[in-house]
Amino acid sequence: MLSLPVDFDTATIAGTALWAIALYWGFSPFADRVILAFESWLGENSPAASLLSVVPFLAAGGLAYYSLTLSLGDSWAVSLGVLAAIGCGVYELGRRDSQASE
């Protein structure tokens, strides 16, 4: 049986998801380019392109969570993920508002 070196408990899943959301919102212009790249491969307005565009951010979120877990601990990694998601969400709202007013 294949055994993974990382224990996937609820804190790991939540922390990775929070960091992925924060990175997705924080780098939303890059996320839009990733979606366009996947749409060019899979077809215009493909729902699969939108779903696949999250994969790089999940990987980066997992790395962020894992590195913070190693350095600060589980609870800090999740707490900082919550703060990052809130901060990047506010940033994204402000960025879209400023684009709409131009």
Rank of each mutant, 00 (worst) to 15 (best):
W41L: 07
W19T: 02
S53M: 12
E39N: 12
W41S: 04
A60V: 06
S79H: 08
W19V: 01
A85T: 08
E92W: 12
L83N: 04
L23R: 06
D32L: 04
V55R: 07
Q99C: 03
A84G: 06
D74K: 13
L52T: 01
V82T: 05
Y66N: 03
F27A: 12
A31N: 05
G89V: 02
V6D: 12
L52G: 06
S46H: 07
W25M: 07
A22G: 05
L18Y: 13
V90N: 04
D7P: 00
F38N: 06
I13C: 07
P29F: 09
L4P: 00
G43I: 03
W25F: 10
I86W: 11
L80G: 01
N45M: 09
A17R: 14
E92C: 02
S98D: 12
G94M: 15
V54K: 11
S98Y: 15
R96F: 00
S75Y: 11
V82M: 10
L51V: 06
L93I: 03
L51I: 10
S28L: 07
A37Y: 10
G43D: 10
R33G: 03
G15K: 08
F57G: 01
E102D: 05
F8A: 05
T12Q: 10
L93K: 15
V82G: 06
L23D: 04
L72A: 14
A22P: 02
D97Y: 15
A77P: 00
A11E: 09
N45R: 15
S46N: 15
S67K: 05
I86L: 14
P29I: 03
E102V: 00
F30G: 03
S75R: 09
S46T: 04
F8V: 07
S40F: 08
G15C: 11
F57C: 04
L68E: 08
A22H: 10
W25H: 09
T12L: 15
L42M: 11
W25Q: 12
W76S: 06
A11G: 01
F8T: 01
G15S: 07
R33Y: 11
G61K: 10
V78G: 06
L70G: 05
L4M: 14
A84W: 12
A77D: 03
F30D: 02
Y65C: 02
P29T: 05
A49R: 14
L51A: 13
S98R: 15
D74Q: 13
G73S: 07
P5S: 14
V78Q: 11
N45G: 09
I13R: 05
Y24F: 14
G94W: 15
S79W: 11
S71N: 08
G61W: 13
A49P: 03
A17S: 14
L18P: 01
V55H: 08
A31G: 04
L80F: 11
M1P: 03
R96C: 00
P56F: 15
G43Y: 11
A37H: 06
E102H: 08
L93H: 11
P56N: 09
